[in-house]
Every structure is written in structure tokens, then in C-alpha cells.
Design a protein around this nucleic acid. Structure first.
Lengths: 267, 267
DNA sequence: CGACAGGTTGACCGTTATCAAAGATCGTGG
DNA sequence: CCACGATCTTTGATAACGGTCAACCTGTCG
């Protein structure tokens, strides 16, 4: 049962968007909707964006006519760094597709502590949970940098799903992946020690980034801790430990070289 | 953000199957396929079961003709207590719908420890993960008692999904619920102390069972520990502690009376 | 009535959270 | 371009939470 193949590293999507944005996703990149057709957005919403819809995996198999139909029902919105796109308890009525930027999806547990669930990159979507249950959001979505999203409201989406069942299959596929990720993550947090979780995370990053032995962590220690169910201090310490053991080498706080994959695996 | 409403307690499905089986789900109930039309199964598989398909939430909105069409593609199988229905790494090609019995779904983490994900009751289905990803199972399914399942193979299911898109919507809805459960569970294991997780679990049981202040745990300490990411010993200790605090009263090891809901909530 | 699985309790100690403070890094504005 | 402040990261000291191992109960079933 060795299965180093799915994985995600919260930073996945190399497969979806092979070369969408080459610029580093930092903040305040420039204008919004950079590679989107219409562009005047920064107040609240701008008008439909073609590039977004045509590229996302759940729609990109449709033909032009169908795409146009979907695009015509789409709204685009811009969010500034730190903006909350939706929050738990809020009623939901749209699917959000990331066109540009990065979105943090997290939950607050009963005790008020936050757990990071995933980070959305261009091409990823969210909002589904509440959408298909006709219910409220359970999680929070926060723009990590200035971000553009395309939105499809529930009724339109349902219409398309009835009309083009292949879309549903794509979404089912995406849900399956996410469910797998989530269950895997739950199982790890429940059964592995922190050091192991970190090691596994590093290995997943390596596989997803495809940049050889050097990986770039897509987030801060705090977020990583939140994702892995630990604290920033412990992350620091365990990484230092893995370095002492000669398994990794920390170039900067975000750049890490994997020196001994096998060592990591048994950590 | 108080949301005591979804929940499951691993023992959900009161909503799906209001009065399906009144007999306690114990072991060796009697013959198999008790309330199923055909009944000669015990060797390996028996032939199509109508009752199963017509009752499950993902199909029960269809009309008779459509149901018959689905039923005709269905196979039924019987598993004895302890049988493995599928295991991680195995290639998947069917959806399993529980007709009678109980199925444990669990994962093994990298270190070989087991985490219980959920327990399926009649009307629940599984196998989706691998189905929609055209991939292998990530989890194990084990019959907890003698159980009957209906199976639909992938190609048939896909055909129906294309033909009756409402089925896809139902499945999307089910996936959303499961994803919510899984994320919630991950967040809890990652952020709450064991005592809190146990308390929350008890509260969910109460809401789902609708039996007033007295709940019946649907599993052993070992399984509960596996589900909550802890050990049987710790479960014992924490329950004893909650009892000392006057929040609960343990009648037998499976029957627990909730004495102070508010107390539990702040645990 | 005895055996066995399941459950409880105790002693111990390892892992990891917490609190505190010092060091690094990054973005901003002068 | 540099300096400042804010934020992120590291490191240390300490303690508690919960896991482990072992022994002892308890209830269930043959």
C-alpha cells in the first residue's frame, strides 16, 4: 500500500494550470483581471470573465457554445488581500472559481481554534459544500492576496448540471479527490506524530511541485501548523530536528532541500 | 456560530431510514435479505434486490420505470461478519449500497494505525471515492455483522448519471455532507483536546438518536477511540471524568445518560 | 461455571503545547 | 536606498496531556 501519487501539498494544481501565471503570486500584482478579457474591477464586481471558465477542469471539456452559455451567467468579483469571501454560518448561493490569486479555506472548531483546510489556486473552486446542501457555509474563505473570482449562482449551476451531466461527473470527481484528501488528512492528524505529519507533508510538496529535491513551502509556519494540527514552534523544532538528522536542509524558511527521502519516510 | 444541527455520530441515517429495521442491528439476525424480494444468498451473491434500491436517498425520487431499469443492473452480495468488502489498493468498479447490516469504513495511515472513518447503515453507500476517480480504494470496508449489499458497476452508474442528472445531484449532496463531516472531523482532531472530542461526540449521538437524554454508543471503546483519534484507555478515563463532573452517567459501557448538556459543551 | 473479549484503572514518561523572549525578514515610507 | 516597524521564525524552559504497558475487573456466551 505505497501510494505516493495523489497528494496535494495544499499547493497542487500543477496539473490544472500548467503555466497559468508565471509571475510569483505575491501581493498587489498589478491591475486586477490581468489576463481576463474585461477589466475595470476593483470596486466590487466586474463583468464576466471568459478565461476563468474556459480553463477550469470542471468546464474545460465543453464546447464553445456551451462555454459561452455558462460564461454569460457568470459574475466576477475582486477581493483585496485579507477580505473574507464567505464565512461560516453565511448562506450560500454561489460557486466561486478562482481566476487569480490565492484563497485560504479554514474552519474554526468549537473551541475557536482555526484549522486550515486548503489553499485555492487559480482554477480551483469552492463554495460547493453549502451549494449542494442548500445550507450555510461551514468554513471561511479569505483572500490571501488580491484575488479575482468568477461566481456562478446555484440555480444556474443546477440548470447546467441537468443540461450537461458531464459537468456533474467532473464535479463528482473533484469531490472524490477532496474527500480523499480530507479523510487522509483526518487519519494522519488522528494517528501520526507531528514529526511524521511534517515529513509526509514535505514529501507531498516535493511530488507536487516537481522541482526536484528543492521545495518551496506555500505558506507560513503558522498556516502550516494550522494545517497539520500543531503549533508554529513545534514546526520549527521538528524541521530543525529533521535537518540535524540530515534528512533535509533549510535554505530559507520557505525553501527546503530534501536530502534523504527514505529517511523522511520512516520519520 | 453555534451549529448543533448537522452531525452524525457515525450512526446517523435516522433521516434516511425512518423505520427501516426495527430489530436491533446485532449479529446473525437470521436469514439474509430479510426484507428483500429474492432470497437465497449466502454462498456469494444473490440476484437483484428491489427494496434496497427503491429506498436509498440517491434513487428514491425516481419513478418506477427508472427504478426498474436501475434494479435490473444491480447485483446483490452477502458478506459474513468480519469479511472485507474491499480494501485499500484494490481497484474499484462498483458502488456498494448497504441493504442490511453494518459496514466499518476505515483507513490505515502510513504508520499502519487504523482510523475509523464511518459506519454504514442500511441505505448508506460507499465505494464512490474510487469510482469517480477511476482509481483504487484508499480505505477498507469490513462487514461488522452479516450484511447484504447491492452493487452497481461503474459503467452502469455513469450511464444513469448521464441519463438522469438528478441522481448526480443527490450524490453531490451526499458527498457534500460527507465532505463536511470529514472536514469537521479533521478540524476537531487537529484542534480539540480528547475530552472535548468525546463530549462533542456524545452530543452528536444525542441529537441523532433522538432518544432523549439517553444514548447508546454504536461501537466498542476501541472503535470509538479509533474514530476520535485516541486510545480505548483514554476514552475510559475521560468518560469517568465526565461522570465525576456530573455531566453524564454511564449506565452500561454502551448506554450513557446525558445529565448536563451545557457542561459537556464547554468540556 | 469458566473462558474470552471488552472495559477499567494505575504508574510512568514521552511528545508536544505554552509562555516568553530574542532574532530574522519583509514591506513601507521617509 | 536605508531605516523602521510589523510580522514571522527560532529557541528555551516548563508542564500537562495523553499514550503505553500491565494488571485487574466485568459481562456475555457457550
Amino acid at each position: 500500500m505505497t501510494k505516493r501519487r495523489d497528494n496535494h501539498c495544499l499547493d497542487s494544481k500543477k496539473q490544472h494550470q500548467p503555466d497559468l501565471h508565471n509571475q510569483p503570486h505575491d501581493k498587489h500584482e498589478q491591475a486586477c483581471c490581468s489576463d481576463i478579457n474585461e477589466c475595470s474591477c476593483h470596486g466590487e464586481t466586474c463583468i464576466h470573465s471568459k478565461a476563468c471558465i474556459t480553463r477550469v477542469p470542471i468546464f474545460n471539456h465543453l464546447d464553445d457554445e456551451q462555454l459561452d452559455e455558462i460564461i454569460s451567467t457568470t459574475r466576477t468579483a475582486h477581493f483585496k488581500k485579507g477580505d473574507i469571501i464567505y464565512h461560516a454560518g453565511q448562506e450560500s448561493d454561489s460557486l466561486y472559481i478562482v481566476s487569480k490569486g490565492r484563497i485560504r479555506i479554514y474552519r474554526l472548531s468549537e473551541s475557536g481554534r482555526e484549522q486550515l483546510l486548503r489553499i485555492l489556486q487559480p482554477g480551483d473552486f469552492t463554495g460547493e459544500l453549502a451549494l449542494f446542501r442548500r445550507s450555510v457555509h461551514e468554513s471561511f474563505a479569505e483572500a490571501m492576496v488580491d484575488t479575482d473570482v468568477c461566481m456562478i449562482v446555484r440555480d444556474d449551476l443546477e440548470k447546467f448540471l441537468m443540461q450537461y451531466p458531464t459537468i456533474a461527473l467532473r464535479i463528482l470527481n473533484e469531490f472524490s479527490n477532496r474527500l480523499d484528501e480530507s479523510e487522509k488528512q483526518a487519519a494522519r492528524v488522528a494517528t501520526e506524530r507531528v514529526e511524521t505529519r511534517i515529513a509526509l507533508y514535505l514529501l507531498e510538496c516535493m511530488e507536487n511541485q516537481g522541482t526536484g529535491m528543492e521545495i518551496t513551502l506555500p505558506m507560513t509556519r503558522k498556516d502550516l501548523a494550522s494545517y497539520l494540527g500543531t503549533t508554529p514552534e513545534t514546526i520549527s523544532r521538528k524541521l530543525a530536528e529533521l535537518e540535524t538528522l540530515g534528512y533535509i536542509r533549510q535554505m530559507t524558511s520557505r525553501k527546503i532541500q530534501i536530502l534523504d527521502m527514505d529517511g523522511l519516510m520512516i520519520s
